[in-house]
Protein backbone atom coordinates (compact mmCIF):
# COMPACT_ATOMS: atom_id res chain seq x y z
CA UNK A 1 0.00 0.00 0.00
CA UNK A 2 1.35 3.41 -0.93
CA UNK A 3 2.01 5.80 1.89
CA UNK A 4 -1.25 7.60 2.35
CA UNK A 5 -0.54 10.12 5.11
CA UNK A 6 -0.35 13.01 2.68
CA UNK A 7 -3.59 12.32 0.86
CA UNK A 8 -6.50 14.31 2.20
CA UNK A 9 -9.46 12.22 3.27
CA UNK A 10 -7.40 9.04 3.56
CA UNK A 11 -6.80 7.44 6.86
CA UNK A 12 -3.23 6.52 7.61
CA UNK A 13 -2.42 3.29 9.40
CA UNK A 14 -1.80 5.09 12.69
CA UNK A 15 -5.04 7.05 12.30
CA UNK A 16 -6.97 3.86 11.62
CA UNK A 17 -5.53 2.21 14.73
CA UNK A 18 -6.55 5.22 16.81
CA UNK A 19 -10.01 5.33 15.27
CA UNK A 20 -10.51 1.67 15.98
CA UNK A 21 -9.28 1.95 19.55
CA UNK A 22 -11.77 4.80 20.04
CA UNK A 23 -14.65 2.75 18.62
CA UNK A 24 -13.72 -0.22 20.77
CA UNK A 25 -13.61 1.94 23.87
CA UNK A 26 -16.97 3.53 23.07
CA UNK A 27 -18.72 0.27 22.35
CA UNK A 28 -17.34 -1.84 25.16
CA UNK A 29 -19.70 -2.00 28.08
CA UNK A 30 -18.31 -1.23 31.49
CA UNK A 31 -18.24 -4.36 33.62
CA UNK A 32 -21.09 -4.23 36.09
CA UNK A 33 -19.88 -3.51 39.58
CA UNK A 34 -20.32 -6.13 42.27
CA UNK A 35 -23.10 -5.30 44.67
CA UNK A 36 -21.90 -4.32 48.15
CA UNK A 37 -22.34 -7.00 50.82
CA UNK A 38 -24.94 -4.90 52.65
CA UNK A 39 -27.16 -4.74 49.57
CA UNK A 40 -26.83 -8.46 48.90
CA UNK A 41 -27.95 -9.10 52.49
CA UNK A 42 -30.98 -6.85 52.09
CA UNK A 43 -32.04 -8.03 48.61
CA UNK A 44 -31.14 -11.73 48.66
CA UNK A 45 -30.81 -13.04 52.22
CA UNK A 46 -33.42 -11.05 54.10
CA UNK A 47 -36.56 -11.86 52.02
CA UNK A 48 -36.44 -15.67 52.48
CA UNK A 49 -35.74 -15.25 56.22
CA UNK A 50 -38.74 -12.94 56.54
CA UNK A 51 -40.89 -15.41 54.56
CA UNK A 52 -39.86 -18.31 56.81
CA UNK A 53 -40.50 -16.16 59.87
CA UNK A 54 -43.99 -15.34 58.61
CA UNK A 55 -44.83 -19.00 58.00
CA UNK A 56 -43.66 -19.88 61.52
CA UNK A 57 -45.67 -17.01 62.98
CA UNK A 58 -48.88 -18.07 61.20
CA UNK A 59 -48.26 -21.67 62.24
CA UNK A 60 -47.84 -20.56 65.86
CA UNK A 61 -51.05 -18.47 65.66
CA UNK A 62 -53.07 -21.40 64.30
CA UNK A 63 -51.61 -23.58 67.05
CA UNK A 64 -52.51 -21.06 69.78
CA UNK A 65 -56.03 -20.76 68.33
CA UNK A 66 -56.34 -24.55 68.80
CA UNK A 67 -57.93 -25.15 65.41
CA UNK A 68 -56.77 -28.77 65.70
CA UNK A 69 -55.73 -30.75 68.78
CA UNK A 70 -51.98 -30.63 69.33
CA UNK A 71 -51.37 -34.29 68.44
CA UNK A 72 -52.59 -33.41 64.93
CA UNK A 73 -50.99 -29.97 64.72
CA UNK A 74 -48.01 -29.56 67.02
CA UNK A 75 -46.39 -26.16 67.55
CA UNK A 76 -43.17 -25.07 65.83
CA UNK A 77 -41.45 -25.48 69.20
CA UNK A 78 -42.58 -29.14 69.47
CA UNK A 79 -41.06 -29.80 66.07
CA UNK A 80 -37.92 -27.97 67.16
CA UNK A 81 -37.74 -30.28 70.18
CA UNK A 82 -37.66 -33.27 67.82
CA UNK A 83 -34.58 -31.81 66.13
CA UNK A 84 -33.02 -31.14 69.52
CA UNK A 85 -33.73 -34.74 70.58
CA UNK A 86 -32.12 -36.17 67.43
CA UNK A 87 -29.19 -33.82 67.94
CA UNK A 88 -28.77 -35.01 71.56
CA UNK A 89 -28.84 -38.63 70.50
CA UNK A 90 -26.31 -37.84 67.79
CA UNK A 91 -28.51 -39.50 65.16
CA UNK A 92 -29.52 -36.41 63.16
CA UNK A 93 -26.56 -36.44 60.77
CA UNK A 94 -26.62 -40.21 60.58
CA UNK A 95 -30.16 -40.15 59.16
CA UNK A 96 -29.32 -37.32 56.79
CA UNK A 97 -26.09 -38.94 55.62
CA UNK A 98 -27.76 -42.31 55.02
CA UNK A 99 -30.20 -40.67 52.62
CA UNK A 100 -27.85 -38.12 51.07
CA UNK A 101 -25.15 -40.70 50.34
CA UNK A 102 -27.75 -42.93 48.67
CA UNK A 103 -29.10 -39.94 46.74
CA UNK A 104 -25.66 -38.86 45.53
CA UNK A 105 -24.57 -42.37 44.55
CA UNK A 106 -27.88 -42.96 42.73
CA UNK A 107 -27.56 -39.59 41.01
CA UNK A 108 -24.00 -40.29 39.87
CA UNK A 109 -25.00 -43.66 38.42
CA UNK A 110 -27.95 -41.95 36.72
CA UNK A 111 -25.53 -39.39 35.21
CA UNK A 112 -23.22 -42.06 33.82
CA UNK A 113 -26.17 -43.92 32.30
CA UNK A 114 -28.25 -40.92 31.24
CA UNK A 115 -25.53 -38.87 29.56
CA UNK A 116 -24.46 -41.31 26.82
CA UNK A 117 -28.09 -42.39 26.43
CA UNK A 118 -29.14 -38.77 25.88
CA UNK A 119 -26.29 -38.15 23.43
CA UNK A 120 -27.25 -41.16 21.34
CA UNK A 121 -30.94 -40.20 21.35
CA UNK A 122 -30.06 -36.63 20.40
CA UNK A 123 -27.72 -37.52 17.52
CA UNK A 124 -29.06 -40.77 16.05
CA UNK A 125 -32.38 -40.24 14.29
CA UNK A 126 -33.44 -43.88 14.38
CA UNK A 127 -32.79 -44.22 18.12
CA UNK A 128 -34.61 -40.98 18.72
CA UNK A 129 -37.67 -42.14 16.81
CA UNK A 130 -37.58 -45.44 18.70
CA UNK A 131 -37.11 -44.38 22.31
CA UNK A 132 -37.40 -40.58 22.39
CA UNK A 133 -41.14 -40.56 23.18
CA UNK A 134 -40.71 -43.35 25.74
CA UNK A 135 -38.03 -41.32 27.48
CA UNK A 136 -40.32 -38.30 27.68
CA UNK A 137 -43.19 -40.50 28.85
CA UNK A 138 -41.08 -42.06 31.59
CA UNK A 139 -40.45 -38.58 32.94
CA UNK A 140 -44.12 -38.08 33.68
CA UNK A 141 -44.47 -41.47 35.35
CA UNK A 142 -44.32 -40.97 39.14
CA UNK A 143 -41.33 -42.96 40.35
CA UNK A 144 -43.34 -44.39 43.25
CA UNK A 145 -45.14 -46.46 40.62
CA UNK A 146 -41.91 -48.45 40.21
CA UNK A 147 -41.66 -49.37 43.89
CA UNK A 148 -43.94 -52.46 43.86
CA UNK A 149 -42.22 -53.82 40.75
CA UNK A 150 -38.78 -53.15 42.20
CA UNK A 151 -39.66 -54.90 45.45
CA UNK A 152 -40.80 -57.98 43.52
CA UNK A 153 -37.55 -57.94 41.54
CA UNK A 154 -35.04 -57.08 44.25
CA UNK A 155 -36.83 -57.61 47.57
CA UNK A 156 -36.32 -55.25 50.47
CA UNK A 157 -32.76 -54.35 49.53
CA UNK A 158 -30.69 -51.37 48.47
CA UNK A 159 -31.15 -52.69 44.92
CA UNK A 160 -34.81 -51.73 45.05
CA UNK A 161 -34.00 -48.24 46.28
CA UNK A 162 -31.39 -47.63 43.57
CA UNK A 163 -33.62 -49.09 40.86
CA UNK A 164 -36.35 -46.61 41.75
CA UNK A 165 -33.88 -43.70 41.90
CA UNK A 166 -32.40 -44.60 38.50
CA UNK A 167 -35.78 -45.05 36.83
CA UNK A 168 -36.70 -41.60 38.14
CA UNK A 169 -33.49 -39.74 37.33
CA UNK A 170 -32.11 -41.30 34.12
CA UNK A 171 -34.93 -40.12 31.81
CA UNK A 172 -34.74 -36.57 33.08
CA UNK A 173 -30.94 -36.39 32.69
CA UNK A 174 -31.12 -37.95 29.22
CA UNK A 175 -33.87 -35.53 28.21
CA UNK A 176 -31.78 -32.67 29.57
CA UNK A 177 -28.90 -33.44 27.24
CA UNK A 178 -31.29 -34.04 24.32
CA UNK A 179 -32.82 -30.59 24.71
CA UNK A 180 -29.35 -29.14 25.30
CA UNK A 181 -28.18 -30.56 21.96
CA UNK A 182 -31.40 -29.53 20.20
CA UNK A 183 -30.95 -25.94 21.29
CA UNK A 184 -27.45 -25.59 19.86
CA UNK A 185 -27.55 -22.92 17.14
CA UNK A 186 -26.77 -24.73 13.83
CA UNK A 187 -24.28 -21.95 13.14
CA UNK A 188 -21.92 -23.33 15.82
CA UNK A 189 -21.92 -26.75 14.22
CA UNK A 190 -21.25 -25.25 10.78
CA UNK A 191 -18.49 -23.05 12.21
CA UNK A 192 -17.00 -26.12 13.88
CA UNK A 193 -17.05 -28.02 10.59
CA UNK A 194 -15.37 -25.11 8.80
CA UNK A 195 -12.62 -25.14 11.42
CA UNK A 196 -12.08 -28.82 10.70
CA UNK A 197 -13.94 -30.45 13.61
CA UNK A 198 -15.37 -33.83 12.57
CA UNK A 199 -16.82 -36.79 14.42
CA UNK A 200 -15.62 -37.15 18.01
CA UNK A 201 -13.52 -33.97 17.76
CA UNK A 202 -16.68 -32.10 16.92
CA UNK A 203 -18.55 -33.71 19.82
CA UNK A 204 -15.78 -32.79 22.21
CA UNK A 205 -15.00 -29.24 21.08
CA UNK A 206 -18.38 -28.04 19.82
CA UNK A 207 -21.35 -30.25 20.67
CA UNK A 208 -20.69 -30.90 24.37
CA UNK A 209 -19.66 -27.37 25.38
CA UNK A 210 -22.50 -25.88 23.33
CA UNK A 211 -25.03 -28.21 24.99
CA UNK A 212 -23.70 -27.55 28.49
CA UNK A 213 -26.38 -25.08 29.69
CA UNK A 214 -29.23 -27.44 28.76
CA UNK A 215 -27.29 -30.37 30.19
CA UNK A 216 -26.81 -28.59 33.52
CA UNK A 217 -30.53 -27.82 33.67
CA UNK A 218 -31.13 -31.54 33.06
CA UNK A 219 -28.68 -32.49 35.83
CA UNK A 220 -30.42 -30.14 38.22
CA UNK A 221 -33.75 -31.68 37.42
CA UNK A 222 -32.16 -35.12 37.56
CA UNK A 223 -31.05 -34.45 41.13
CA UNK A 224 -34.57 -33.32 42.09
CA UNK A 225 -35.95 -36.54 40.57
CA UNK A 226 -33.30 -38.66 42.33
CA UNK A 227 -34.11 -37.14 45.69
CA UNK A 228 -37.87 -37.45 45.24
CA UNK A 229 -37.65 -41.04 44.06
CA UNK A 230 -35.33 -41.89 46.92
CA UNK A 231 -37.80 -40.60 49.48
CA UNK A 232 -40.64 -42.53 47.85
CA UNK A 233 -38.54 -45.70 47.93
CA UNK A 234 -37.32 -45.22 51.50
CA UNK A 235 -40.87 -44.66 52.78
CA UNK A 236 -41.92 -48.07 51.56
CA UNK A 237 -38.77 -50.16 51.61
CA UNK A 238 -38.21 -50.81 55.31
CA UNK A 239 -35.73 -53.33 56.63
CA UNK A 240 -33.41 -53.31 59.64
CA UNK A 241 -30.50 -54.22 57.40
CA UNK A 242 -30.97 -51.09 55.29
CA UNK A 243 -30.31 -48.56 58.05
CA UNK A 244 -32.45 -45.52 58.68
CA UNK A 245 -32.71 -42.86 56.00
CA UNK A 246 -35.08 -39.92 56.15
CA UNK A 247 -37.91 -41.85 54.50
CA UNK A 248 -37.60 -44.74 56.94
CA UNK A 249 -37.36 -42.25 59.81
CA UNK A 250 -40.61 -40.61 58.76
CA UNK A 251 -42.41 -43.93 58.39
CA UNK A 252 -41.17 -44.80 61.90
CA UNK A 253 -42.63 -41.59 63.31
CA UNK A 254 -45.91 -42.28 61.52
CA UNK A 255 -46.30 -45.71 63.10
CA UNK A 256 -45.74 -44.07 66.47
CA UNK A 257 -48.34 -41.39 65.62
CA UNK A 258 -45.65 -38.77 66.29
CA UNK A 259 -46.78 -35.79 64.23
CA UNK A 260 -43.93 -33.57 65.44
CA UNK A 261 -41.45 -36.15 64.23
CA UNK A 262 -43.17 -36.46 60.85
CA UNK A 263 -43.12 -32.69 60.36
CA UNK A 264 -39.50 -32.49 61.48
CA UNK A 265 -38.56 -35.11 58.86
CA UNK A 266 -40.47 -33.31 56.10
CA UNK A 267 -38.52 -30.17 56.96
CA UNK A 268 -35.24 -32.12 56.83
CA UNK A 269 -36.08 -33.55 53.39
CA UNK A 270 -36.92 -30.09 52.14
CA UNK A 271 -33.81 -28.52 53.61
CA UNK A 272 -31.49 -31.16 52.12
CA UNK A 273 -33.07 -30.80 48.67
CA UNK A 274 -32.81 -27.02 48.74
CA UNK A 275 -29.31 -27.04 50.22
CA UNK A 276 -27.84 -29.30 47.52
CA UNK A 277 -29.41 -27.12 44.84
CA UNK A 278 -28.24 -23.86 46.45
CA UNK A 279 -24.74 -25.07 47.30
CA UNK A 280 -23.98 -27.01 44.15
CA UNK A 281 -26.25 -26.77 41.12
CA UNK A 282 -27.29 -23.12 41.21
CA UNK A 283 -23.75 -21.70 41.54
CA UNK A 284 -22.52 -24.04 38.79
CA UNK A 285 -25.36 -23.09 36.46
CA UNK A 286 -24.95 -19.38 37.17
CA UNK A 287 -21.23 -19.57 36.52
CA UNK A 288 -21.70 -21.25 33.16
CA UNK A 289 -24.47 -18.90 32.06
CA UNK A 290 -22.64 -15.79 33.22
CA UNK A 291 -19.41 -16.74 31.45
CA UNK A 292 -21.42 -16.96 28.22
CA UNK A 293 -23.21 -13.67 28.81
CA UNK A 294 -26.54 -15.46 29.12
CA UNK A 295 -27.26 -14.12 32.57
CA UNK A 296 -27.65 -10.40 33.10
CA UNK A 297 -26.55 -9.28 36.52
CA UNK A 298 -29.61 -7.87 38.25
CA UNK A 299 -28.98 -4.19 38.85
Amino acid sequence: MASSETQPGRTGTADLAGLEAGLDALETKEAAERLPVGRILVTKVLPPIVAIGLVLAIWQLVYVAEVQPDYLLPSPLDVGDEFAEMWRQGTLFEYIWTSVSRGILGFLIAVTVGTPLGLVVARVKLVRAAIGPVLTGLQSLPSIAWVPAAIIWFGLTNGTIYAVVLLGAVPSIANGIVSGVDQIPPLYLRAGRMLGARGLTSVRHVLLPAALPGYLAGLKQGWAFSWRSLMAAELIVQSPSLGTGLGQLMEGFRTMQNMSGVLATIILILVVGVAIDLLFFSPLERRVLRSRGLLARVA
Binding site: L187, R190, A191, L195, A197, H205, P209, L294
Partner: peptide, 23 residues
Protein backbone atom coordinates in the same frame (compact mmCIF):
# COMPACT_ATOMS: atom_id res chain seq x y z
CA UNK B 1 -20.40 -15.69 8.55
CA UNK B 2 -22.69 -12.70 8.93
CA UNK B 3 -23.00 -13.61 12.60
CA UNK B 4 -19.60 -13.87 14.26
CA UNK B 5 -20.13 -17.60 15.05
CA UNK B 6 -17.54 -17.39 17.83
CA UNK B 7 -17.98 -19.98 20.55
CA UNK B 8 -19.34 -18.24 23.67
CA UNK B 9 -17.86 -20.85 26.02
CA UNK B 10 -14.34 -19.83 25.01
CA UNK B 11 -12.46 -16.57 25.35
CA UNK B 12 -11.49 -14.63 22.22
CA UNK B 13 -7.97 -16.06 22.38
CA UNK B 14 -9.18 -19.62 22.98
CA UNK B 15 -11.50 -19.40 19.99
CA UNK B 16 -8.47 -18.70 17.83
CA UNK B 17 -6.45 -21.41 19.57
CA UNK B 18 -9.18 -23.95 18.85
CA UNK B 19 -8.86 -23.18 15.14
CA UNK B 20 -5.08 -23.59 15.43
CA UNK B 21 -5.49 -26.85 17.34
CA UNK B 22 -7.88 -28.31 14.76
CA UNK B 23 -5.35 -27.32 12.11
Amino acid sequence: FQEHALFPWLTAGRNIELALRLR
